[in-house]
Each structure stands twice: as C-alpha cells, then as structure tokens.
Write a protein that binds this DNA or RNA. Structure first.
Lengths: 215, 215
DNA sequence: GTCTATAGGGAGATAGAC
DNA sequence: GTCTATCTCCCTATAGAC
C-alpha cells in the first residue's frame, strides 16, 4: 500500500509546501520531487527516474512507497486540495461583513497560489492526468471551493454590500483570478505573494461593487 | 519540409477554429486532430497514432506534412497566437475612450477564448512542450498581448478615466481573467461566449475604477 | 502522398539480491 | 527499504513498396 500521506494539523512549512507531515522520510522526498517535476514539465513528461533522482533514490524505490506514478499525482492533488480548501474556508469566515470575508478569502487564496506556486500548479493544471476515480473525488473537492466563493457573493448581495448581476459567473471570474496566479507567478518576481494578494483583493472588491473600505 | 501553414486574411470558420486556410487538406486535418488531442490530453499524453487516427490516416502520414510531433504544436501555437494577438489588437483600437477600448478588448479576447476554447487551451497551456527556439519565439508574441493591455490601462489612467494603482499588476489580472476562460469553458454550458465576454468586460471596467457607462 | 512494417529508444513497473 | 538488472510495452520516427 501507500505510506501515510495525511496532513498534520499545524503544518505550514514553506520548504515542504504542506507535505511536511508525510512519512516516512523517503515517501516525503519522493512526493516533493514529484511536485517539482510535475510543476516543471507536467505529469506525462515526467519520468519516474526523474522523480526518484530528485529524491536521491533509484527508480525502483518509488514503488515501495507508491503503487504507480499516478498515485503520486493523486496524493499531491488530494493533499493540496484539502489544504487549499481549508485555507480558503477559514479565510471566508474571517470578518463580520461580506466585504471583509471576500477580502480575506481572495487575499489568502491568492497568497497561497503564489507562495506555493509549485504545488498549486500541479493541483490546478494536472487534474486531467488523474485516474477517473481519483479525478471524480478531486472534482468534488473543487466544488467546495466554488461554493465558498458563491456563498460570500450571495451573502454580500443579500446584505446590500455588493452589486453583482451574475453571482455564479462572477464567482467563476474571482476563482480564475486566484488560480491563474499559479500559472504565471515566479519566485523572485517584482511582487511578493502578500502584495499580489492585497492587489487582487482590492480588484475583486471593486469587481463586486463593494464600497471602498477605509480608502 | 512543412506544408503551407499560414493564416488567410479573412478566415473565421468556427469549425476549423482558424486553421481553415492550411493546405493541403491532409495537413489541415492533422492539425485539427492535433488541436483536439492536445486540448483533451495534453501534448505529452497524445500519441502520433491518435493524431493521425483523428485525421483518418496512418501514423506515418503525419511525417509527410510535419517533421515532428512538436512541429504540430508549434504551428498550432504560432498561428493561434498570431490570431489572438491580432484580434486583441484590433479590438483595442475600437473606441474613442480608454474605457471603450478596454471594454472591446476584454469582450473580444474572452469571447475568443470561449468560442475557440479547444485551440485556446493548447495555445495557453501547452507552451512548455515547445522546443526552446519555438518557445522563445512564442513568448515574444505573448509580450505583445500584455503590452496591448498595459497601454490601454496607462492611457485610461493618464486620461483620468481609470483609477489603477499598479498598472502592470492589473494588466496581468485582466489577462488572467481572459486566459483562464480557456481552462474551464465547456461548450453547451449555461453561458454563451458572448455573454461571458459581456460579463467579464463589465467586471474589468469596475476593476479599473471606470465610471459606469450607460448604466 | 499514403500505406505496411519496423527500427530504435525509453518509459513504467517488477524480480530478486542484499 | 533500497539497490541493480531487466521485462515488457508502446512511442516517435523511418524505410521502402505502391
């Protein structure tokens, strides 16, 4: 079977990009190697030799910890989605007004996509390489993400804070803004993840017609 | 060598998704097969057998018209980028005010990404599979795209139409909105490409703090 | 220009020693 | 648990007949 690939509650290590709690050590190194390789080249262009090499092991060692190459992608995708949904969900409960919650949600979600852009790139753009059953499971988690944003927008409209003609379409647009950060973000660029989060939160508040807060 | 893969000026066929002018017929069918396959599975997961099969030919026939599988991707990417830049550039000259030009640019660019989402998906998300020289060439074309948006935003700020703190960052955000449509759009969804274009143009005008026009 | 057949190279995954 | 060696499959690209 597979080694323990579960999230420990409090883990937030930057270097491990949220896989810090994976044990044993070899399994974690393989997972981190796979994240890097999949992010760089994509799942199908990545060889098991490459992954094992990044983990400092022989190709065969991979199969002690994971049944297939696809299972590595699945674990990355599953843990990555769990974490991103949790982070977004927590932020979406921060604040009394819908505007505050939307600000926190976008700020946090964007920051996650920038800071952990390597993981995020795999999480967001390699879905189609998942086995069908795994794909189905992950898609369900992704619906939670959309749901969270839709709820904030609906709440804001109901409370008279936002002016949004098409809640579903606008939620999709907000999500696009956040997700696409993982595609273009590079470490060492002109903006920090925090700055991008702040910029995008402001843009989104305007998008939904929220009154400027404290400007 | 390669058969003629150039854009005929007036071609806008929906079915051919902008490759209608490629000749001879077999070369075009292969290109269209490749677009479909690359969009569905990605470049590396697509086999030349699959591409040739979609074109109703044997695997070997592919090499009469294209030197390698990568050349197919290159032609798709090149023609697709040429077309998308031209469409965006034309829209960006439509209108007297910056707001009108931004509206037209976003509306048109989004519509293109939805209507030709199959081509757009390859154009936007398979870049990393290009050979290095081809990649370099395509990246240069992509800079034109960013440039067009930055110019509209700068003009709008200079004219006092927009309130934008970070022109570069905001241009990137606008681009994200447009591009990401190719990722999630499915034919037969609840919104037409035109509706999405209209929705997104409105969202973007709000993002840049443009006064509501005619609302 | 298109086909059938196949060369040549890796890829994912396994066997079995240590 | 990890390694070396290797199996087996299938992919890209080519050869040569038609």
């Amino acid at each position: 079977m597979t080694d323990a690939v579960d999230e420990a509650a409090g883990a937030d290590e930057a270097a491990d990009e949220s896989f810090g709690s994976v044990t044993p050590d070899a399994a974690r190194r393989l997972l981190l190697g796979a994240v890097e390789a999949f992010a760089e080249r994509g799942f199908h262009a990545t060889t098991t030799r490459d992954i094992a090499g990044r983990a400092g092991m022989s190709p065969a060692a991979l199969y002690i910890h994971y049944r297939t190459k696809e299972e590595l992608l699945y674990q990355i995708s599953r843990v990555g989605h769990e974490r991103s949904v949790r982070i977004l969900g927590a932020a979406a409960e921060t604040g009394d007004t819908a505007a505050e919650r939307l600000d926190a949600a976008v700020r946090t979600f964007v920051r996650w996509h920038a800071e952990y852009h390597t993981t995020a790139r795999v999480v967001q753009y390699e879905l189609s390489a998942l086995a069908e059953e795994h794909y189905t499971e992950i898609v369900a988690m992704r619906r939670r993400t959309e749901e969270i944003l839709r709820t904030i927008l609906s709440d804001g409209v109901a409370a008279g804070e936002f002016t949004v003609a098409d809640v579903n379409g606008t939620a999709l647009a907000v999500l696009s803004l956040c997700i696409d950060v993982a595609r273009w973000y590079r470490s060492g660029g002109p903006r920090t993840p925090d700055e991008i989060g702040g910029l995008y939160a402001g843009l989104v508040l305007r998008m939904v017609g929220a009154e400027p807060r404290g400007v």
